[in-house]
Structures are given as structure tokens and as C-alpha cells.
């Protein structure tokens, strides 16, 4: 049985339901899978998570989490899922220990009972257990929040943008923790605006303006990108980008870190591009074949 099954789920806001936050979304998540919902702010990720965690009622469609319906069996779901909202949602005036104890009791369990599950994470913040949660740094707050969300050994874990605003080192550590949780058999749904985190998920879905653009493993998604992408760099990157966008054998060109990415039309050649760019006066030109990334796929899907 699939851990999470979502069928044509929609959510609208506003007086006349004119704001469509989630539009006809469907996907499945297998047990012990890390499933990433990738999309920018305002894509509808939070609304989707809130429906799955029984905080919001869908306007249409249905979904189940671990076999329980999100509307009818909301009480059952609340017993077996862990949820970490986007913003820090612990009691700032309670200490690390008090927060954890409190969450353990409301789930009718104790820290001792499930210590093995949170040990790896909690051990890093244990030296500060007497400190008020409000006085913790971003990375530590995140670890405490995750510990609290795990304290009752949930079957499915929902993490809404856990790495937003967190630096690259803490992000890396966080993903390592998720990998270990997956090994314990926990299904993890995680949303993120960072495209580079997509590769760390087993399967992902790309979300934009309430719609799912594409769902699959990261390799499936990048594999469906059939066109050639050339990475181009030159001495003046800004001028280079203008020249690339003006070239008619290029479908799309955009900045992409060190290189600009040029999505080539069919029947175009690398040599012709090189010649064109040299004629335009670009110096220190480097052109190379690029394997499409998730971000390339996202950009293409967004624009189409």
C-alpha cells in the first residue's frame, strides 16, 4: 500500500474561491520514500501540506495518509503523522528539554521510549537542553523542531520548507538526518524552494502556481529533457547572455552559475554558435555539453 495517495486535490481561497492555491494535484508516495515537493514561494506547497496534515479541508479531490482519509479519519492521521511547519513553531519561552517533554506527553509517549529515533539529532542540541528555545540559533531550532516532530515515531513525516533560510552546511546536515530516518522506515514528504536539493530525494514533483509540472525520480525528470544544453562562458558574462538570447538557433538562454545555459533548437551546431559568438566579440570563450539539471527542467516546464 502506498503511504500517501493524492487524487485531484484542489484548494481555493477568498470570498468567491477566486484564489486557486492548489489545482487538481495527484501523486503517490511509497513507504520509506523521501518525496520532494520542489517549487518557489507561493507555489501552493504549504496549502498542500496543510491539507494532508488535516489542517485544511480540500475543496475537491481526496487523499489518504497511511490508509486514512484526510477528511473522514483526521483523528487517526493526527495520531500517526509528524509535522514541521515552515516557520519555527515551538514554544520560545520553554527550554529545549521542556519543549521535547511537552510534545512527548501530548502524543502519550516519553522521550525515553523513542530516544533511539531522535538520538542522532537530539545529541547535538542536548548540551543546550536548559536553554530557552527562543535563544537557539537557526540550525539548532531546526534540530529541536525535528526532534519534536519525531518524538512519537510517526509513520509519515511532513516537513514544510525545513531548509529555507538555513545555510549550506546546516542544509547538508539536515539532509543527512533525513536519509537516516528513511532507513528507519519513515516516509518523508519534504518541500523546498532549493532546486539543488531535488537530487537528494528519491522522487520529486515540481510545483508552480498550484500545479504539478512533473513528477518522478530526479533522473526521470532530467532524462525527459531531450534538447541539447550547451554551457557557455566568456570574459563578459552579461554581454554573452545578451548575445545568446539574440541567436536564432537558441530556444532559451539563462545564467546558470559559472556557465550560461543555452537550450539549443534542433539541427543547431556547436561550431556555428562558437563562430557567431566570436564574431560578436566574446573573449575567452568556452563551450561545453551540459547534462540537464532539475533547475533546467523546471525552467523549461515553467516557460512552456
Amino acid at each position: 500500500m502506498q503511504s500517501v495517495i493524492v487524487n485531484n486535490l484542489s484548494k481555493n481561497y477568498g470570498k468567491e474561491k477566486e484564489i486557486k492555491a492548489v489545482k487538481d494535484v495527484s501523486f503517490d508516495v511509497s513507504p520509506a520514500e523521501i518525496f520532494g515537493i520542489i517549487g518557489p514561494d507561493g507555489a501552493g506547497k504549504t496549502s498542500l501540506f496543510r491539507m494532508l496534515t488535516t489542517l485544511l479541508l480540500p475543496d475537491s479531490g481526496n487523499a489518504s495518509v497511511d490508509g486514512s482519509d484526510i477528511v473522514k479519519d483526521f483523528k487517526a492521521i493526527r495520531k500517526k503523522v509528524g509535522y514541521m511547519p515552515g516557520r519555527f513553531s515551538l514554544y520560545q519561552d520553554l527550554s529545549v528539554e521542556e519543549n521535547l517533554n511537552f510534545f512527548a506527553t501530548i502524543f502519550n509517549t516519553t522521550i525515553e521510549k523513542n530516544y533511539d529515533l531522535i538520538k542522532d539529532i537530539y545529541i547535538q542540541i542536548e548540551p543546550f537542553k536548559k536553554r530557552k528555545a527562543g535563544k537557539l540559533s537557526g540550525g539548532m531550532k531546526q534540530k529541536l523542531a525535528l526532534s519534536c516532530a519525531l518524538i512519537h515515531r510517526p509513520v509519515v513525516l511532513f516537513l514544510d520548507e525545513p531548509t529555507t533560510g538555513v545555510d549550506a552546511v546546516s542544509r547538508k546536515e539536515f539532509w543527512d538526518m533525513l536519509k537516516r530516518l528513511k532507513q528507519q522506515g519513515i516516509t518523508i514528504l519534504v518541500s523546498t524552494p532549493y532546486m539543488d536539493e531535488a537530487g537528494l530525494c528519491d522522487r520529486i514533483t515540481l510545483m508552480q502556481q498550484g500545479k504539478l509540472l512533473s513528477t518522478g525520480t530526479p533522473t526521470e525528470i532530467t532524462g525527459s529533457f531531450k534538447q541539447t544544453i550547451l554551457g557557455v562562458k566568456a570574459a563578459n558574462m552579461y554581454d554573452l547572455l545578451k548575445d545568446l538570447n539574440a541567436y536564432n538557433a537558441i530556444e532559451d538562454a539563462y545564467a546558470f552559475g559559472e556557465y550560461h545555459h543555452a537550450v539549443m533548437k534542433e539541427n543547431s551546431s556547436e561550431e556555428a554558435l562558437q563562430k557567431y559568438l566570436e564574431e560578436k566579440g566574446n573573449k575567452e570563450l568556452v563551450i561545453q555539453q551540459i547534462k540537464p539539471t532539475i533547475e533546467d527542467s523546471f525552467l523549461r516546464l515553467m516557460k512552456s
Binding site: 496543510r50 489542517l55 493526527r78 509535522y83 516557520r87 513553531s89 515551538l90 514554544y91 501530548i106 516532530a149
Partner: peptide
């Protein structure tokens, strides 16, 4: 406001 209600609601309480 602080979002803790959200977490409380997604619990068996």
C-alpha cells in the same frame, strides 16, 4: 500567531 497551534492541531490532543 506563533504557529504552535498548527502543530497542536496535528496531534492527537
Amino acid at each position: 500567531e506563533t504557529g504552535t497551534m498548527e502543530v497542536m492541531l496535528v496531534s492527537p490532543v
